[in-house]
């Protein structure tokens, strides 16, 4: 639980940074381990069901480990009308999973992200921090192959 202690210390043990602490847990571990919810609850004196509620409230947080590569599709409206929906469908078909899930081999997770503000180059997907703009459904296979 050393990583949790250093996260708690980073915010001087202040409970009003609980959401930021959970974000750091998510970054550090790639998901929010169940025991971290109980740990934060105890150390910050916040009821467990409140921490649980926050940890499940945001699409950014996940209680399950994510796959090796996380594919985020911008869910903004401009991307959507410019073909983002077809991009999501193509990804779901190719990976055989729905948004929010990971492939059984834990290679890819598929997620939607909030509007990135890069509307000028939508539809957009982001894989492991790398941004791909003006993506067409036909580009996806090539992009996935490149990743692994």
């Amino acid at each position: 639980m050393d990583y949790l202690e250093s996260i708690i210390e980073k915010y001087s043990r202040r409970r009003n940074f609980l959401i930021e602490m959970l974000m750091d847990v998510q970054h550090e571990k790639g998901y929010i381990p169940r025991e971290s919810i109980f740990y934060l609850s105890k150390r910050l004196s916040v009821p467990v069901n409140e921490v649980m509620r926050i940890a499940t409230f945001y699409k950014t947080f996940s209680l399950k480990p994510k796959a090796e590569h996380v594919i985020k599709v911008c869910s903004g409206v401009s991307c959507y009308i410019r073909g983002g929906r077809e991009v999501v469908e193509k990804l779901e078909n190719l990976l055989g999973i729905k948004v929010g899930d990971s492939t059984p081999d834990m290679k890819f997770s598929l997620e939607l992200s909030s509007c990135s503000g890069r509307c000028a180059s939508g539809p957009e997907i982001e894989i492991d921090g790398e941004v791909y703009g003006n993506v067409k459904p036909d580009d996806i296979e090539g992009i996935l192959k490149k990743i692994g």
Binding site: N49, M52, R53, T56
Partner: peptide, 29 residues
């Protein structure tokens, strides 16, 4: 959820998720 938290102070049930996916869940622990 509220009775367990406000009156009994056991926090054994939680709201989880948001929007149309919102539901309640017991915390087994």
């Amino acid at each position: 959820v509220r009775y367990c938290s406000e009156v009994k102070k056991k926090y054994a049930i939680s709201f989880v998720q948001s929007g149309v996916k919102r539901e309640i869940s017991f915390i087994p622990e």
